[in-house]
């Protein structure tokens, strides 16, 4: 019989419980349907971005272009919809086509990131930093710094609607996470990816195709950025070059908190899921307590440092 939960995930669950108890004592309002539904609506976006961040981190890299990629793809998606659906009308085929465009753009960005990383042997941090600037520049050029807003009602359902009382984006998130768990645990790609992240030399000697593996990893990451982008844009009912700028560092924070080794190799989808829940409880709680938002940023910094220190100590 396998253990239901490993040590790391248990720690995250305990910390989440401590968080909930603390905030409830400080402010009993915390334990309300309202705050939990707000948590459930925010988790999917940040969670999907973090899963997208986790994949390149597992191979010892990082992706600093996730948010920029999401913004450019939603801008293109929004323009496509505006061009093909009259104001006030609905068209499900066009909507589906624009979602496909959004995810395809992000996957293509991942493809280019992967190709540059593997073909020119440049650290992913630099490649994706460059990519981030390129994409943000293009987005600003298209929008002239403005915001594109107003989606058809059917599209806005993705980020605002509910099915049987469960937020639609939450259902999407669970499905996407389940798919990623299957990919990581049950496909040869997932195993190779984790082996490669743990020891690139030995996997190379074992005959693993590094080029294909890295490009696929970045493309898969891009696809998850795309899904997150669709949800985010739908919830905000807009697209702009500067949306969700503060998400980037949070995704790295949550990934490390969730047990992703910054040197590559270690990391599980389940760890990310628990870490996202913990993070969002904390963020919501601090918000309810009206803690100064600048202090909150500093607090996040402290958390990431602590998480890295604890993880590194454990690994040694």
């Amino acid at each position: 019989m396998k253990k239901v939960m490993n040590y790391e995930n248990r720690m995250l669950v305990i910390l989440t419980a401590v968080c909930i108890i603390f905030f409830t004592i400080m402010k009993p309002d915390f334990l309300s349907v309202n705050s939990f539904s707000s948590i459930a609506r925010q988790i999917p976006e940040i969670g999907l971005f973090t899963l997208a961040m986790m994949l390149p981190m597992l191979v010892g890299g990082i992706d600093l272009s996730v948010i920029a990629s999401a913004n450019l793809s939603t801008i293109l998606m929004s323009m496509f919809m505006a061009a093909n659906i009259e104001k006030g009308e609905e068209s499900v085929p066009v909507m589906l086509a624009s979602i496909v465009i959004c995810i395809a753009v992000c996957t293509a960005v991942g493809f280019f990131n992967g190709v540059i990383v593997v073909k020119f042997k440049i650290p992913a941090m630099l490649v994706t930093l460059g990519m981030q600037m390129v994409l943000t520049g293009i987005s600003l050029g298209i929008t002239k710094g403005g915001t594109l807003s107003g989606y058809p009602q059917s599209f806005r359902f993705i980020g605002n609607g509910s099915i049987l009382g469960i937020p639609a984006q939450f259902i999407l998130f669970i499905l996407a996470s389940a798919v990623l768990i299957v990919i990581m645990q049950m496909t040869s790609f997932g195993t190779k990816l984790q082996m490669y992240g743990s020891n690139q030399t030995a996997t190379g000697y074992s005959g693993i195709n590094e080029t294909a593996l890295l490009i696929k990893t970045h493309m898969l990451s891009g696809a998850y950025v795309g899904i997150a982008a669709v949800i985010m844009s739908s919830r905000l009912n807009s697209a702009s070059a500067g949306a969700a700028a503060n998400y980037l560092m949070r995704t790295i924070l949550i990934a490390v908190l969730g047990g992703v080794d910054p040197n590559g190799g270690k990391g599980r989808v389940s760890g990310i899921l628990w870490a996202v829940v913990l993070f969002q409880c904390m963020a919501t709680g601090l918000n309810i307590l009206r803690v100064n938002s600048y202090i909150v940023i500093a607090l996040y910094g402290v958390i990431i440092l602590l998480a890295v220190i604890v993880r590194t100590r454990k690994n040694n």
Partner: peptide, 13 residues
């Protein structure tokens, strides 16, 4: 240790 094995992965993998 460096080229032959991925030490922190299972014997099966």
């Amino acid at each position: 240790l460096l080229q032959g094995l991925v030490l922190n992965q299972s014997i099966e993998n």
